[in-house]
Design a protein around this nucleic acid. Structure first.
Length: 816
RNA sequence: GCCCGAGUGGCGGAAUGGUAGACGCAAAGGACUUAAAAUCCUUCGACCGCAAGGUCGUGCCGGUUCGAGUCCGGCCUCGGGCACCA
């Protein structure tokens, strides 16, 4: 401790201690309160980035803090190891995705260890290992048996030059990122999980997640998008009727056309007869699948020449083919009410289609056409031009119109979800093989349990063109139909990587079990008490994980309804105001930070620079500032060591009160997860203790107070900067064991008692002074003192108070 | 286009509807030093004033309230998500 602060030495000593003591390896103990703290596992991209450092520091701070509070803490770590970047890397350097991934994991594991995170490494898992994904395959076959997995067609981005499916990310401005060819939309058969069967429960259970940020709950609610409406059948002369869904059955009498997808049988039939429809259908193939692209593209259409019959009036309604209608959503057809829907309005204008106003605001006078001159009228209102429904409100009309449809067998009330079933097929190599054998006679047959896992060959280097390399692997492809025993071929599609990340939180509990997916240990640890990750996962990952939890529950594998009790969504790490990214060239490598300042400085900076949920602006100067604080803390330890530890004299009460006030503040801020203000309080404590240590040289009675304060601040800082506090605690012999096992501190309530307090005095809401009053003063006492104040009298300018508002213990406002 | 957030000193940020700017960074001045670095001390929202003190100030416009950074309505800008990046 006489030596200057050396992060490298200190951090090695602390980490050696945790390693030899196996400090973070945990076993279930039903007699103790458990705390499962989980950070979203990383994709092994090669090196940690600042977002990881922030995420994992937050998780580690919470874990260590709960442990000091007396909880049995599980904090595991693993690797979300399947995914597209490994294939992209393979294209660049010819290394198999497996090799690249395992090398990355090895490097990043060392980085995590160097940062001092308290993980139970005995539970480490990588999702690309057969012993992990075999259970995912097993679960899929169970879901298939229960009808929760099924096959249907869905659109993909297709590059006609490379003859391959592109991810949305690989489509740039509507073109292939490699060869610049305009991307086409293709409908191909794919596997789906029936998440919509759980839509109601996924929506309802959001109410049972008070530990989640409100904005995430709102986003999920909107994403699921439950809406009440009607399913309506429009008869088509000489063809199958069209089934459509609408949330606005009250506008039914205003329907002036229908629109079908370009791939719809009706559009294809029209294309055979009319060249302009054929041209339109062909042109519509050049399109993307992303919703953002779909919503912002030019809306085009063409008259198919077919007519539908209005279900109530029998009036003929023209049917258009339109590029914004997708075949795979619903029935591939929509009804259009241009007077009351923005998109229909714009489309009708473009093609000179009629608009009929059927809803007007209550009390509307004048021509109804004026209502929709510039835009559709989308609010509810009163019905007009709707025959027998005229004069009804939108709400009543919905019921009546649905009843009228039902009476004719042409429609029914229906609940609809924006949420769509989850397409889990990927036409890629580096993923979990879908455990299906395609037999010419029996169709898609699930692989029997005894034949699982279906192992992905790891010696493959994928190519840019031509789709999955598994199609060229005879050893992988060849299979025998489990049902009829004839020759068959294995499914070559792999799972969406969101599948693996949807249940890893449970597998950590039973990681070594080769006989079952999960066991009783999962029952002990689940649910996760605290989950921590980026806000960018607010919808997809978190919704899929919630869905999987319910699937696992319904398979009898776990007992809880929701996987994550509390959720912390951390903000991004920015530099110069924007997200760090290779393309922007504004990245800062955490490795350099660790090398020059050490893990504690990195952790301290990350926790101090912003509250967890906000974005964090990178600053080299602020990092240096964090390091400076650690040097001061170290030097303070040296100064404290020279002071007397015991004294018969009473400590300075005012100083002790200030000390415990700061401790109290820090403890409260831990509860709120405001680690930046925890650190602010600790800095104030260190400032106070520095002055105190100087004064103690001449006033020995201050020695014990300095020791007390230092013991408190070390423990408050221990979760954030565990290395330096470990060594200082040990070298100053602050307690029996290591600081990681020391009890969590609390402010001494006796020290916090004040005899006199300061009350702020306002006149008409503006601060005009303050008065010192005994802590036990009544409102009347405070008012009398405030009114006697010279400054108050001056600002009253002779007026008498009309009203006096007293906030006990804080403030008095005199209104004159 | 749709859904969800965020905007406070030169900078990061603090503030259960109750003293706006805690804590830190940067900057300026000073101490120590032959000098520099390191360290320590002081000042630090804008404007008026010698001072006491006062006025203005939390993206913009409006509202609720004794009192609004905080609540409500409308805008602007930036960020996240939009189902095949993870």
């Amino acid at each position: 401790m006489d030596q200057p602060y050396s992060a490298e030495r200190i951090e090695r000593e602390a980490q050696d201690y945790w390693e030899t003591q196996q400090s973070f390896v945990v076993r279930e103990d039903p007699g103790r309160p458990k705390f499962y703290c989980l950070s979203m596992f990383p994709y092994p991209s090669g090196r940690l980035h600042m977002g990881h450092v922030r995420n994992y520091t937050l998780g580690d701070v919470i874990s260590r803090w709960r442990r000091m509070e007396g909880k049995l803490v599980l904090q595991p770590m693993g690797w979300d190891a399947f995914g597209l970047p490994a294939e992209n890397a393979a294209l660049q350097n010819g290394v198999p995705p497996a090799r690249w991934t395992y090398d990355n994991i090895a490097y990043m594991r060392e980085q995590l260890k160097r940062l001092g995170f308290g993980y139970d490494w005995s539970r480490e898992l990588a999702t690309c290992r057969p012993e992990y994904y075999r259970w995912e395959q097993w679960l899929f076959t169970r879901l298939y048996a229960r009808g929760l997995a099924y096959k249907a067609t869905a659109p993909v981005n297709w590059c006609p030059t490379d003859q391959t499916v592109l991810a949305n990310e690989q489509v740039v401005d509507g073109r292939c990122w490699r060869c610049d060819t305009p991307v086409e939309r293709r409908e191909i058969p794919q596997w789906f999980l029936r998440i919509t069967a759980y839509a109601d429960e996924l929506l309802a259970d959001l109410e049972r997640l008070p530990g989640w940020p409100e904005r995430v709950l709102t986003m999920q609610r909107n994403w699921i998008g439950r809406s009440e409406g009607a399913e309506i059948e429009f008869a088509v002369d000489g063809r199958e009727p069209l089934k459509i869904f609408t949330t606005r059955p009250d506008t039914l009498m205003g329907v002036t056309y229908l629109a079908v997808a370009p791939e719809h049988p009706l559009a294809l039939a029209a294309a055979a007869a009319r060249p302009e429809v054929a041209r339109f259908v062909a042109a519509s193939r050049v399109a993307q699948t992303a919703e953002a692209a779909l919503e912002t593209m030019e809306k085009h259409g063409v008259d198919t020449g077919f007519f539908a019959r209005h279900p109530l009036t029998g009036r003929p309604i023209p049917i258009f083919a339109a590029n914004f209608v997708l075949m795979s959503y619903g029935e591939g057809a929509v009804m259009a009410v241009p007077a009351h829907d923005e998109r229909d309005h714009a489309f009708a204008r473009r093609y000179g289609l009629p608009m009929t106003v059927v809803i007007v605001p209550e009390g509307h006078v004048g021509a109804t056409e004026d209502l929709i001159r510039d835009a559709a009228y989308t609010q509810p209102g009163v019905l007009v031009h709707s025959g027998e429904f005229d004069g009804l409100s939108s709400a009543v009309a919905r019921e009546r119109i649905i009843a009228a449809l039902a009476a004719r067998g042409a429609g029914t009330a229906r609940t609809h979800y924006r949420l769509r079933d989850w397409g889990v097929s990927r036409q890629r190599y580096w993923g979990t093989p879908i455990p299906i054998i395609n037999c010419a006679h029996c169709g898609a047959v699930p692989v029997p349990d005894a034949d699982l896992p279906v192992v992905l060959p790891e010696d493959v280097v994928p190519a840019a063109r031509g789709g999955s390399p598994l199609k060229a692997r005879a050893d992988f492809l060849a299979a025998t139909c489990p049902r009829c025993g004839r020759e068959a071929v294995r499914e070559t599609d792999t799972f969406d990587t969101f599948m693996e990340s949807s249940w890893y939180y449970a597998r950590y509990c039973s990681k070594d079990n080769q006989q079952a997916m999960l066991d009783e240990r999962a029952a002990y640890w689940l649910p996760v008490d605290q989950y921590i990750g980026g806000i960018e996962h607010a919808i997809l990952h978190l919704l899929y994980a919630r869905f999987f939890n319910k699937l696992l529950r319904d398979e009898g594998l776990i007992g809880v309804d929701e996987p994550f009790t509390r959720l912390l969504t951390q903000g991004m790490v920015l530099k110069d105001g924007s997200k760090m990214s290779k393309s922007k060239g504004n990245t800062v490598d955490p490795q350099a930070l660790i090398a020059s300042y050490g893990a504690d400085t990195a952790r301290l900076f990350m926790m101090f620079a912003a509250p967890p949920e906000q974005s964090l602006e990178w600053s080299d100067e602020a990092v240096a500032g964090a390091h400076r604080f650690l040097k001061r803390l170290w030097a303070l330890g040296g100064a404290i060591a020279t002071l007397g530890r015991h004294s018969a004299l009473a400590p300075d009460q005012a100083l002790r009160r200030e000390m415990h006030r700061l401790v109290d503040q820090a403890v409260r801020d831990y509860e709120r997860y405001h680690f930046n203000t925890v650190i602010a309080s600790c800095m104030s404590l260190v400032n106070l203790l520095q002055r105190l240590a100087e004064d103690a040289a001449v006033k020995p009675a201050l020695g014990p107070l300095a020791w007390e304060g230092f013991g408190l601040v070390l423990r408050l800082l221990a979760p954030i900067v565990p290395h330096i506090t470990h060594v200082l605690w040990r070298d100053l012999a602050m307690g029996e064991g290591a600081i990681i096992d020391a009890p969590w501190p609390a402010a001494d309530p006796a020290a916090l008692v004040q005899e006199e307090i300061t009350i702020v005095v306002q006149v008409n809401g503006r601060r005009r002074g303050e008065v010192r009053v005994p802590a036990a003063s009544t409102s009347a006492d405070v008012e009398a003192l405030a009114l006697a104040d010279a400054g108050v009298q001056r600002h009253l300018e002779g007026r008498s108070p009309r009203k006096v508002v007293v906030v006990p213990g804080r403030l008095i406002n005199i209104v004159a």
